[in-house]
């Protein structure tokens, strides 16, 4: 690990300002992704700003009937919150399907959204990777890419976003609240949060340098049956090959977001009009224009079948 200096921040705006003051700064929350990558020298911050003491660990009701989730709420606490279990069960389910009990006890809402890809070549510093070393090439294209993206990828990068929680957040129309180093706050809808890889796969989100996530908000509950189906190589403690997050209403209408298929949780609102016609129709619309590799083409059928299972479960 490269050496770094360390400070503890006491207030959100102060943390953001501190990030601009010291070049090469990064925030550290749970540390479960950042520290892992620092050990491999894939991340090499010169300065860490510990945000764990910021008072951003509360889940609060909002006047519009929604919920504000502090950036530092731990994944365990979010999944276990009574309001989330009752009104946003998809979010609880997605969180509980991720990582392990130990990791969820540390992992935070903001850190989870910002965790980096699990592309095996991103982790292997002997291999070219445009995300890790811009301009070096992409070892995954033409390499072992069974786990990688089938849609939304570019000539430069075919990585997927690994978060389960983000899939639920996308289906629930979450909004991200931030504070910038100049003290100004803003909100970014999750649909606009993740950047397409294009020719700059190292730029992953809409966040500006030093911008701190303070909360994630959810609109008022939409009802329906909430289902999160995650398909993986072992039954627990493994990342998704694909996942389906669905909210299905009595009349057969609903929402679907996918994990494990793209650089972001994949949702196409127009495809949801096909819900009453069944899983094949929805999947065809949702994954129109997919460009799978020969190793990961199975994901298209896996999505259809997993969605089919979710629809059957909702009907039962």
């Amino acid at each position: 690990m490269k050496s770094f200096t360390y400070e503890r921040a006491d207030a959100p705006a102060e943390a953001a300002a501190a990030a601009m003051r010291t070049p090469g700064s990064r925030f550290i929350a749970g540390g479960t992704n950042l520290l892992d990558l620092m050990k491999l020298e894939i991340e090499t911050p010169a300065h860490l700003i510990d945000v764990n003491r910021l008072a951003l660990d509360k889940i609060e009701p909002m006047s519009d009937g929604g919920l504000r989730i502090g950036a530092l709420v731990r994944n365990t606490d979010l999944a276990a919150d009574a309001r989330v279990r009752r009104d946003y069960a998809l979010l609880s389910r997605a969180l509980l399907a991720g990582a392990s009990g130990q990791l969820r006890n540390r992992a935070t809402t903001a850190g989870n959204l910002l965790q980096r890809t699990r592309c095996p070549y991103f982790y292997d510093t002997n291999q070219p990777c445009n995300k890790r070393t811009p301009g070096s090439g992409c070892a995954a294209i033409g390499g072992f890419n069974r786990t990688l993206a089938v849609i939304g990828a570019s000539e430069a990068c075919i990585a997927t976003h690994p978060s389960d929680m983000a899939v639920a957040m996308r289906a629930l129309d979450a909004t991200i609240e931030t504070v910038r180093p100049d003290g100004k706050t803003r909100t970014v809808a999750i649909v606009d949060f993740y950047r397409a890889p294009g020719s700059t796969p190292h730029l992953e989100t809409a966040l500006e340098p030093g911008e701190l996530i303070t909360a994630v908000t959810l609109p008022k509950p939409v009802g329906g049956t909430h289902i999160y189906h995650k398909v993986r190589d072992r039954a627990s403690y493994a990342f998704a090959l694909i996942s389906v997050g669905a909210i299905i209403q009595r009349d057969g209408s609903g929402r679907v977001a996918l994990g494990g298929v793209a650089y972001k949780p994949w949702r196409v609102e127009a495809a949801e009009a096909e819900m009453p016609r069944g899983a094949r129709a929805v999947t065809t619309a949702l994954l129109a224009g997919a460009k799978p590799t020969h190793e990961n083409a199975f994901k298209l059928l896996l999505v259809e079948r997993t969605l089919s299972a979710a629809l059957a479960q909702a009907r039962a």
Binding site: T32, D36, Q102, L103
Partner: peptide
């Protein structure tokens, strides 16, 4: 963070001590 051998209990909650800095 992949094996759990380093699990300890901090403030009543189990965590992986390998993925946490002592200064935190």
């Amino acid at each position: 963070g992949q094996c759990g051998a380093c699990t300890v209990i901090v403030e009543g909650r189990r965590i992986n001590s390998c993925l946490s800095l002592a200064v935190m």
